[in-house]
Each structure stands twice: as structure tokens, then as C-alpha cells.
Design a protein around this nucleic acid. Structure first.
Lengths: 237, 237
DNA sequence: CGTAGTTACGTACACCGTACGTAGTGCGGT
DNA sequence: ACCGCACTACGTACGGTGTACGTAACTACG
């Protein structure tokens, strides 16, 4: 009998420890930390139930006492990473505060390159995500307009940052398990692109690539993107 | 001997048919269509090499003659979907044209809900992606400024659309293989969220959720987001 | 104190991507 | 014309995955 009910479940809704039975040997934080350690060191694809269990030093199936599905393990990881967001007293300048938030998120994703791949609206309800959201809304207190618009702004900024960092990291995460380097992969792809552009079928793209941009400052591109989004939301501008 | 070189490879760089040996039984288009059919009907996770081979009616390992790695199969799928973009003669109004592009991309992703998950800058060099990019640049001819900025605009819009549709589809793709419905999953998550908000720890979030937005028009939210981005890029505004 | 609910974990299953070997096929060069 | 080789086709097998299920030990509650 018993056998877990075939119903959706939010991992945060069940208590970490529930009276009966032996003390659990590990906390959710332990598990999240182990998974994050593996993902940081060996890439997201190295995070398997077996691998995490081994890292913890327990049997594979014991993990399922803590984490009913692998998805929930991912959710723990995202929450743990979100916990690294440092929050501050809002400055009163919502644009400056949101810029700071965005930069912090970007730094976070550089520290944990697997994060963008796990960024899903479905994981938005973890404790640290809620704290983060509330903090953003607090920073936006000085901004006029309904809360709904502020939520849209936050969603948009998060989306931009995630997309942007994904592009920055590009093949980095992906090539980790492959037998060749990221440079080799990029070189091959760029060589192919050049050969395509040389056909003359894509004159505007060719022009874009030949245009000398001077030294590319990734940070500047990022800031420009953020500023544009903020401009679009700023009623005073 | 031989054994494929352990070097990166762009699938588009190798000819579909190369003289020697028996005629290949399938074209890349056949294979892409089969994979797309499966993904549309059963979700992206149902797309396995075995499954696609079965759909085509050939042995599993025969597929590897056409597609050296599974990643390349994904690349074929993205390209095939991109082929559904209909291109038009630019109107002269770049804002209107870009809005049209964005709406088309959204429709495309609704038809193929697996697309957002496969949207990676790495796949940006397929024939149809290049055509699409060139078309966007053509639409942006009337826009002043260097090509680099136009590329940034296109990247940003694509990012927004992908993020936005991902949110729209949210759990849809994900729950397809699960034993419960999307409605059940949503209900459980929302119930949990309400319980969290009821603690009073997140007053601004609670306010945002209690705020009556009237009927939510997803289309309007989408358009608003696009307009904001375009505003941020429009020197004349 | 029993007993019910937990923890722990080994085994097993279905499925995955794909390395490798073999057999058949038809074009290219001589 | 014909040989040889590059190519197609595909069966088998390996090491991995998530996880269902069964069993044994343990502990807090009625």
C-alpha cells in the first residue's frame, strides 16, 4: 500500500523533519550544497542522483527521502544559489538599485554557470526567491505605478540578465564534457560562418561582422541593455 | 581504422550527400520533420535517437550517418522550425516590422512549445537562422545607427520573446510526461504561494497578488514589453 | 509498549546516447 | 571493365540515467 500519492508536490511545502523515525542524516542545505559543489566543479550534467548521493556519502535511493524527484533537487540548487544574493536597504533611487540587482545576478551566474539553464519561472517560489522578489519590490517603492508593472519590470530584467549571461557563457557549459576545447569549437563555428557570409547571400550580416567595433566591452554592452530596459519603464524619462 | 576525428563539427558544413556509396534513404528535412513531429505530439523529452529512427523506419544507429551527435538533431529541429518564418518586403517602418517579427516568433513557439528550450545562440548559424537574421537586418535598414546596435536589438527582442513564451508555456511542456495535469500542478503551487504570502513576511508581493488587475490580456502584456524595448532603442523617441 | 511512519539502501527495470564491428552497395580512378 | 574504397545500414553492447519497489532498522507518539 502507501506508495507516494501521484500528486504534484511543492518541496518547500513539506517539513524538513517530521517527528517520527530516525533523525535525517542530512539537511536540505547539505544536499543543495553538495549538488552545487558538483555542478560548479564538473558542470550541470554531472549532477545525477547517484553522484550527489556519493558526494554526500549515502546510498543513491536514500536521497529520495529528501528529494522526491530530480526536479526538486534542481529547485534546491536554485534556491541555494539565490541565497547568495545579498540584500540591502533600498537607496531611494530605484533605477540605481535595479542596476545593482542585475549586476549581482550576473555575478551570481558567473559563479554558477549552470544557473541560467535552471532559471525557470516554476522555481520562483522557493524561500530565497521570495525574499529576492520582495527585496526588488522594496527597491521599487519609489517608482510610481501599480505593483503589476513593477513585477513586469522585475521579470523583464531577470529575463534579460539570464539571456545575456547565457550568451556570454555560450558554449562554456556545453563543451565541458566534450573532448575538445571551447576555443576549438568557436573557431570551427566562426570559420563556417565566414564561409557562409562569403557567399554574398547575407550582405547586411556580412557588413555587421566586418564593421570594426573597436574593443568589445562586455560590461558596457550589458549596461547598455539594462539602461534601455529601464528607460522603457521609466515614466519620468 | 579511421573512427571519426575527435573534432568539433558544424553539421551544416558537411554536404548532405557525398558521391560515393548508396543513396542516403532520407534527407535532413525528412529527419528534422520526423523529430519535430514527435516533439510536437509527445514533447521534447520523447525525442530520442531510437524514437526518431523508429519514426523514420530505420535502425537506430543508421541515424548517426546523418547526425553525428544528438545536439545536431536539435540543431536540425531548430532550423526546420525557423523555416516556418515567413519573410516579407520591409515596410519602411522598422518598429512595425520588428513587432511583426516578434509576433511571428511567438506564434511559432506556440506551435512548437519545445522551441524555447532549444533556443541557444549556438544554433544561430543554421541556414534558416541566417535568412531570418538577414531579414531582420533588412527591416532595420531605415533605423539609423551602426549594425552592431541593430544586432543588439535583434538579440534583445529574441531574448524577450523566448523568455516571455517560456513563461506563458511554463509548466505545459514539463508536465506532459507527468501523471498529473498542468491545472493540478498550478493549483498546488498557487496554494503554496498563498500560504507563504499569508505569513505576512512578503507584504509587497502580497499586495501585488491582491491587486485586482482586471482581466489579464496576455497579448497586451506581450505588446507592452516589446514596445518598451523598442522605445529603449528608438533614438527618435 | 506496541505500532505506525521514517530513514536507509540494495536490487532491478526501462531507457538513454553512442562506440564499435560487420555486411552490403555503388561511384571514382585506373 | 573492374578494383577498391567510401559510404550506407544496422545489430550488439557498454556505461550511464531516473526511479519503482521491497526490506530492514529505528524512533516518537498513542
Amino acid at each position: 500500500m502507501a506508495g507516494r500519492a501521484a500528486e504534484p508536490e511543492v518541496i518547500w511545502a513539506r517539513p524538513e523533519r517530521s517527528g517520527r523515525g530516525p533523525r535525517p542524516a542530512y539537511s536540505r542545505a547539505d544536499i543543495a550544497a553538495a549538488a552545487v559543489r558538483i555542478a560548479d566543479a564538473e558542470g550541470l550534467d554531472a549532477v545525477s542522483m547517484r553522484r550527489v548521493a556519493a558526494e554526500l556519502g549515502c546510498g543513491t535511493m536514500s536521497l529520495y527521502n529528501y528529494v522526491p524527484r530530480k526536479e526538486d533537487l534542481y529547485e534546491l540548487m536554485v534556491d541555494a544559489a539565490g541565497g547568495e544574493h545579498e540584500l540591502w536597504e533600498p537607496s531611494g533611487n530605484w533605477r540605481a538599485d535595479m542596476l545593482r540587482v542585475a549586476h549581482q545576478t550576473r555575478d551570481l551566474m558567473h559563479r554558477h554557470p549552470w544557473l541560467p539553464r535552471l532559471m525557470s519561472p516554476v522555481y520562483g517560489f522557493s524561500p530565497n526567491s521570495l525574499r529576492y522578489l520582495e527585496h526588488c519590490l522594496a527597491c521599487l517603492d519609489p517608482m510610481p505605478g501599480p505593483q503589476g508593472v513593477k513585477m513586469e519590470l522585475i521579470a523583464m530584467l531577470n529575463g534579460i540578465v539570464t539571456t545575456y549571461v547565457s550568451n556570454e557563457l555560450a558554449t562554456a557549459e556545453r563543451t565541458r564534457s566534450l573532448p575538445w576545447s571551447q576555443e576549438q569549437e568557436n573557431a570551427v563555428r566562426i570559420a563556417y560562418l565566414r564561409s557562409r557570409l562569403a557567399t554574398g547571400a547575407y550582405p547586411r550580416m556580412a557588413a555587421a561582422f566586418l564593421e570594426d567595433p573597436g574593443p568589445i566591452d562586455l560590461e558596457a554592452v550589458f549596461d547598455r541593455a539594462l539602461t534601455r530596459v529601464l528607460d522603457g519603464f521609466d515614466p519620468g524619462r
